[in-house]
Write a protein that binds this DNA or RNA. Structure first.
Ligand code: FES
Ligand code: FES
Lengths: 153, 153
DNA sequence: CCATATTCCTAGTAATCCCATAGGAATTTA
DNA sequence: TAAATTCCTATGGGATTACTAGGAATATGG
């Protein structure tokens, strides 16, 4: 379960690169991140349609973030690539199952979805674009967001 | 992301049924849960090889839980069907990426895996086999386990 | 104005995975 | 001994995934 599609991994790596560099062309992102150029073009276009990046065509063109990286939640990125988080078909539709609204398996899946959703809402692109840090979690956020760390200096 | 395979859903529904009935044949589980009989046979066999259920062959045979439902964690069930939780290949192997041990995307995936893992460790088969309840989460467990509820009477 | 760099659009494709189906051998019990 | 059951292996169709290919549209530097 939870084998994340290459497409989504590429999207995230590409965005982290764009956030770090402040904007780049598909070709250069692909080269730096070791991703197929043509495939990545489609991915970046999808991210653009979802309003996560903006693009400039022609010479000197490329992709930039539409907003500060700290305002882009990872759940938006995932949603842009794969749509809503829906582990099972019935998760928001009690009419599917004979056990109806009180079906326990359905609650189980809802809980799983909520876990994932909360995590993805707790991380921003900014977190991913950071330079390497030593991993010392702040106490209050260690459970919800394991990426909050203390910078080395 | 996180589209859970039908196989895993079937396994969980089947186990919930077996837990409630105290044991049943593949054919009867399949009928009750609206699952293809032959397909379910293979699934139950897999659960047996993982030590989650035990089986009796021949007439009056069928499948029973190997332990009390309260001791069977949902993560065991998922692992039995799909193996280890590994959202991306590099999640436990820092040699993959050029950024090495400090790769931020990798930390991101580790955090995701931990979220899912903690959730799946917090729910037992017993929770799923319960009769329908009104959903009033206990304060202390509401985040980690949304399935803990107060029974109606 | 034109060569070049870029995004954007559409189509195809090989490989893989998923969900099931089929047939029957082995085993147990009424 | 017949029926009910698990257990084993093989196969296939459909969907999805991860690319590949070709080129049209657009912008810019020289
Ligand atoms: S509503 Fe999905 S299993 Fe009951
Ligand atoms: S280790 Fe997987 S993206 Fe860096």
């Amino acid at each position: 379960m939870f084998q994340v599609p290459a497409k989504t991994q590429y999207a995230i790596r590409a965005l982290a690169h764009i956030a770090r560099t402040g904007g780049d062309s598909a070709a250069r992102v692909a080269l730096a991140q070791n991703i197929s150029i043509k495939y990545l073009e489609g991915i970046l276009n999808q991210l653009k349609l979802s309003g996560i990046v903006v693009s400039d065509r022609g010479r000197q063109g490329g992709y930039r973030l539409s907003r500060p990286a700290s305002e882009i939640l990872m759940i938006e990125v995932v949603a842009a690539m794969e749509g809503e988080l829906k582990p099972v078909e019935c998760v928001d539709d009690s009419s599917v199952c004979s056990r109806g609204a009180f079906c326990m398996p359905r609650r189980f899946w809802q809980g799983l979805r909520d876990s994932v959703e909360n995590y993805l809402k707790s991380v921003t692109l900014d977190d991913l674009a950071e330079e390497p840090t030593v991993r010392i979690n702040r106490i209050n956020q260690s459970v919800i967001n394991p990426l909050k760390t203390v910078r080395l200096r």
